[in-house]
Nucleic acid binder design. Structure first.
Length: 267
DNA sequence: AGAATTACCTGAGCGC
DNA sequence: TGCGCTCAGGTAATTC
C-alpha cells in the first residue's frame, strides 16, 4: 500500500513529467470513492496549467493556479503515466490528459482513495487542516514528540500513526521505526522519555528517507510508479527470526492494526 | 479532550 | 468449482 515514501516518489516522478503541462481532458468513469469525486472536475480542469505538485502527509496536491487537485491513494490506489490511447482496465477510475499527449491514470480497486478539488489555501481545506508536522522537516523533533505524548495513555504506535500528531506515518513505517528505535509498540505514549522520543523521531525520519531513496534508485517505470521492493525488518515478518538477535518476532494487534516487534530488542 | 469503535471497499486466501 | 468467511488497512466520523 502506498505510504509516505511511495507517495513522495510518485510526486517526484510526476513533477518531472507533468509540471508546466496543460490539462486537456478529464475522463471520470467511477466517481464513487471514499469521498465522491466532484463531477465538475471534467469542466474545471481542461485549459488549466499544472503549476506544481506538492505533498502533505500522504496527500498529493496538484496546484492548478485557480485551485488544486487533491489526490490520496488510500490503500490500493496508484497513478500511472501511460500512452494516450491505452484502453482502461478494471478499477481505472479517472484519466487526466495533458497536452493531448500524456495520460495520467488513477487506479484504485478498493476505492479508499480520494480525488477532490479545492480553492484557496491548502491549510484551510478540511482534509488538510488538522494534519501535524511533516516527519521529514525540522518541525518533527524528539521534543515535539515528547510534548505530544505527554499524559497520553494510547500506545506509542497509535500515537505516531495519528495524523494530527505527525503526518503520513502508516502502519508499515510505524512498525519499522519502533523496531529501529528499540521501543515496544505497546508502550503507553506518555511513558516515553525525552531521549526515547528523540530516538523514535530520528528513526521515523530515517526509515522514511531510506525508503524514498530506495524508490528513487530503483528503476521506476511508468507502469509502477508507486510500488517498489523494499527491505522491511519487521512488518509482515511475525514468527520469523529477528535480524538483530536469535529471538522470534512477535505479533499483536494495536488499534486493530497488525503489529510486529521483537521482545528482546524492543523495550 | 482523548480514547475506542465503526464505516468505507474489494481481492486474496482458506475451509468446506 | 464455487460459496462464504476473514483479513488487509488510511482516514473520517461517530460514540463513549
Amino acid at each position: 500500500m502506498p505510504e509516505l515514501p511511495e507517495v513522495e516518489v510518485t510526486r517526484r516522478r510526476l513533477e518531472r513529467d507533468l509540471v508546466g503541462k496543460r490539462f486537456t481532458q478529464v475522463v471520470l468513469r467511477v466517481a464513487k470513492l471514499r469521498i465522491p469525486v466532484p463531477p465538475e472536475l471534467t469542466e474545471i480542469l481542461p485549459g488549466l496549467t499544472l503549476q506544481a505538485i506538492t505533498r502533505r502527509g500522504k496527500y498529493l496536491l496538484f496546484d492548478c493556479g485557480s485551485g488544486s487537485l487533491l489526490i490520496h491513494l488510500g490503500m490500493t490506489g496508484f497513478l500511472r503515466l501511460l500512452q494516450v490511447f491505452s484502453p482502461p482496465e478494471k478499477h481505472d477510475h479517472i484519466d487526466f490528459l495533458f497536452d493531448d499527449t500524456l495520460l495520467l491514470r488513477f487506479h484504485d480497486p478498493r476505492k479508499f482513495g480520494i480525488v477532490n478539488w479545492f480553492t484557496g489555501e491548502p491549510g484551510q481545506q478540511p482534509l488538510l487542516a488538522d494534519i501535524g508536522p511533516e516527519p521529514l522537516t525540522d518541525a518533527f523533533t524528539g521534543g515535539y514528540l515528547f510534548n505530544a505524548a505527554r499524559g497520553r495513555s494510547v500506545t506509542i504506535k497509535q500515537l505516531i500513526m495519528n495524523s494530527a500528531v505527525v503526518a503520513g506515518v502508516g502502519n508499515i513505517y510505524a512498525n519499522e521505526a519502533l523496531y529501529r528505535a528499540g521501543i515496544r509498540p505497546d508502550r503507553a505514549a506518555g511513558s516515553l522519555t525525552l531521549h526515547e522520543c528523540s530516538l523514535l523521531a530520528a528513526s521515523v525520519r530515517s526509515v522514511l528517507e531510506e525508503s524514498i531513496s530506495a524508490g528513487i534508485n530503483c528503476l521506476v517505470t511508468a507502469e509502477t510508479i508507486a510500488y517498489y521492493p523494499q527491505e522491511l525488518k519487521v512488518y509482515g515478518r511475525g514468527g520469523e527470526v529477528c535480524s538483530e538477535c536469535d529471538g522470534m518476532l512477535d505479533e499483536m494487534r494495536l488499534g486493530n492494526r497488525s503489529t510486529v516487534f521483537c521482545r528482546n530488542c524492543q523495550i
